[in-house]
Every structure is written in structure tokens, then in C-alpha cells.
């Protein structure tokens, strides 16, 4: 009973401290937990790998802000690298003002890293990749993109007129884009599915935070999206795929966190089991 009371009255701050330790220790002493590629990640990878011709266009929706960046940023990076390996053009689009900053960060980082690692296949802003300017209006913007993408945005986020950019060659509507991956932690995914996929038949994949992953599985099953990256784990799987198949050697933001993720999960499972045992013992004793 003493133990039960101790567990019941434990100061939450001890738990916070333990969580911090459980997360930090695997970073310093990595174990390298094995990881299996799940089918939704594999199918997105396969689509980009096999079904988009060279010089085809990958549209990536950067609809997140710093609060969910930890999960979605590694996805955006991995997708961009994958597109570079296959010589696809990448267009970033955002429905959030803060998304602009996120997109520019990805472009800066991937271009620098890629160009220093692959001097024979240089990528250039405006020719291989760019971020479309933020335009407010969400659903109105998505609908207008179905009619005319250059007229919807006029310029990219760096202030260049879209008609002068080689990356925009031949792009007028969704029809000229090969695939879209929407990265978001909010319901803006639904709008993309409704308008871009529903009305304009854009082929789509979703990358989302783990919070929303369970919800978005139903769109996978209905065929509205053909791939799903769920949370940091999804990003880590994608990193593993580009490493294995293309020899990606850069920093793997998601993969290095997987040990910490696993250890934290084990810790939480223990807490839940302990909490339930204590709950039932207490209930039993009180019932007596």
C-alpha cells in the first residue's frame, strides 16, 4: 500500500526528468533499433521512383509551422532529395504564412548539401526547385490552381516572376504536375484532397504528424491518397529507403531520433502498466 500511495502522489516533475533522460541517453549512446518499412511509405516511394518520368514535377505542400516542424521537416527534406536523385523538378507550395519560412529553410539546406555532395549534378534554385509565393485563401487558391497555376501565384517566394523561371516550364494546371505530397499537421489536408484530388484528379500522397496519422489512414484505404508518411517514424522510413536505394549519406534527422522514440515508448508503456496496476490495487483495497 505504501508503494501504491507513493506512485499515486509522485511529483510529476520526476516523470518529466525521467522522460528527458530516456530521450537524451539514446542520442549519446545509439543502439540502432531495426526498422521495417511500412506499405504506405513504400508505395509513396515507389510512385515517385517509378511512375514519374525524368524532369517531371513533384508538388510538395509545406502546410506546417515550427510547432510541427520536428516531424514534417525531415519528410520534406527526404522527399526533396529523392526528387533530386531522380532528376525531378520540385515545387513547394504553402497555405500558411509561416510555411514560407519552412519551405525556404528546406530549399537552402537541401541545395547546399546536395551541391557539395554531388558536384557533377548541380541543382539550382529556380531551375530545379522553388517555393511558390504564399497567397491567402486556402480553398480558393487550390481551386484557382486547377485553372492556372502561374496566374494564381504570379511569383515565387523569392520575388521572381514565375514566367521567367525554367522550373515552371510547361506548368499550367494540376494536369502538368505528376504528383503531390501534402505535408501538414492540420485539416488543410482535407481541402487538398477535396479540391486538388477530388475535383482535379491530382495524384496525392500525405505526410502528416503522428497525431493525425490514424485519421488519414481512411483516405489511404479509399484511394484518395496512395501513400502516407506518419510522424517521425514515417520520415525515418523514407530516409532509410533513399539511403538504401540511392546511397543518401547526408544527415538523417528522423532516423537518429528513432532510438529515442523507441526508448520513450517503452518507458510510457511501463508507466501505463504501472498506473493501471496501482489503479486496480487501490480500487480493490477501497472496495474491501
Amino acid at each position: 500500500m505504501k508503494f501504491v500511495n507513493f506512485i499515486n502522489n509522485i511529483d510529476k516533475r520526476w516523470i518529466y526528468l525521467l522522460v528527458a533522460l530516456v530521450v537524451i541517453i539514446p542520442f549519446v549512446f545509439p543502439v540502432g533499433c531495426p526498422m521495417r518499412i511500412t506499405p504506405p511509405v513504400q508505395s509513396m516511394y515507389n510512385y515517385i521512383e517509378d511512375s514519374i518520368p525524368e524532369n517531371g514535377v513533384l508538388l510538395v505542400g509545406i502546410d506546417y509551422d515550427p510547432s510541427t516542424m520536428a516531424e514534417l521537416h525531415p519528410m520534406a527534406k527526404a522527399l526533396t532529395y529523392h526528387a533530386f536523385y531522380n532528376n525531378l523538378r520540385v515545387l513547394f507550395v504553402t497555405m500558411y504564412p509561416q510555411g514560407s519560412g519552412m519551405g525556404q529553410d528546406i530549399i537552402d539546406k537541401t541545395l547546399t548539401q546536395w551541391n557539395s555532395a554531388n558536384p557533377e549534378n548541380q541543382k539550382e534554385l529556380g531551375r530545379d526547385i522553388t517555393l511558390l509565393a504564399y497567397v491567402p485563401g486556402v480553398s480558393a487558391v487550390m481551386l484557382k490552381m486547377g485553372e492556372n497555376i502561374p496566374a494564381t501565384f504570379n511569383e515565387d517566394a523569392y520575388g521572381n516572376k514565375l514566367e521567367n523561371l525554367p522550373v515552371m516550364d510547361g506548368i499550367k494546371t494540376y494536369n502538368n504536375l505528376n504528383y503531390m505530397v501534402e505535408l501538414a499537421g492540420s485539416s488543410v489536408v482535407l481541402s487538398w484532397l477535396m479540391y486538388a484530388n477530388g475535383r482535379y484528379k491530382m495524384k496525392m500522397g500525405i505526410g502528416t504528424t503522428a497525431v493525425s496519422a490514424a485519421e488519414y489512414y481512411s483516405y489511404l484505404q479509399s484511394g484518395q491518397s496512395n501513400g502516407l508518411l506518419g510522424g517521425l517514424k514515417g520520415a525515418a522510413e523514407y530516409e532509410k529507403l533513399i539511403t538504401e536505394n540511392h546511397g543518401y549519406a547526408g544527415r538523417k534527422d528522423a532516423s537518429v531520433g528513432m532510438d529515442a522514440q523507441s526508448s520513450a515508448h517503452i518507458f510510457f508503456i511501463l508507466l501505463i502498466v504501472l498506473g493501471n496496476i496501482v489503479f486496480f490495487i487501490k480500487k480493490y483495497k477501497e472496495g474491501k
Partner: peptide
Amino acid sequence: ASDLLASS
């Protein structure tokens, strides 16, 4: 339209 990707 000019310079569309033929694959589209």
C-alpha cells in the same frame, strides 16, 4: 501551349 512535357 509550348514546352509541355509530352508525358502529361
